[in-house]
């Protein structure tokens, strides 16, 4: 497996607006490096670098300020045939912990020879660190149990 810490800051920086969670919350999951590794593993170094250069430029040009940031994320990332599926995967990986297969049309055009694109949880920890549970006021099913009778009142946070 290719492992690299290069790009981690850039990856975290763009993950903040993509997920709607603060940098500290994302770092606290302990998963940032694993998710970046997963991206790297599937799409390779070149495309990862290219992607993170682009996201860094977006953040820099907009100064991270709305509404410019939203426009650029939508136009340059989500609407892009190349980066849209990847961006959606990164968002879903943070929320659910799993890598989703990049669609066949994307694979045909950009993903020749790519391996490991099948649907899989990045690791058991990734499932347990999914942001979705916090977003809905719960905890991962089967983990981080909140204790006896906790379910009979509204969540505390």
């Amino acid at each position: 497996m290719d492992k690299t810490t290069a790009g981690l800051d850039a990856f975290l920086a763009i993950s903040v607006p993509l997920t709607g969670y603060s940098k500290i919350a994302l770092v606290a999951t302990g998963m940032a490096q694993s998710y970046l590794d997963a991206v790297h593993r599937v799409i390779g170094t070149e495309m990862t670098d290219e992607y993170l250069t682009l996201t860094a430029r977006i953040l820099q040009q907009t100064g991270g300020k709305e509404p410019a940031l939203d426009r650029e994320i939508r136009q340059q990332l989500l609407a892009s045939l190349k980066y849209g599926p990847l961006t959606r995967n990164i968002i879903q990986m943070w929320y659910w912990g799993a890598w989703l297969p990049l669609p066949p049309a994307w694979m045909a055009k950009y993903g020749k020879g790519i391996k490991g694109n099948e649907n899989h949880f990045v690791s058991p920890e990734a499932y347990q660190q999914g942001l979705i549970w916090n977003a809905m006021g719960s905890h991962p099913e089967g983990s981080k149990q909140p204790g006896f009778a906790s379910w009979s009142i509204a969540p505390l946070s």
Partner: peptide, 13 residues
């Protein structure tokens, strides 16, 4: 994506 996604998930689920 982002905060809108978080709010949507929080409301629907």
């Amino acid at each position: 994506y982002g905060k809108d996604l978080r709010t949507y998930i929080g409301d629907l689920l």
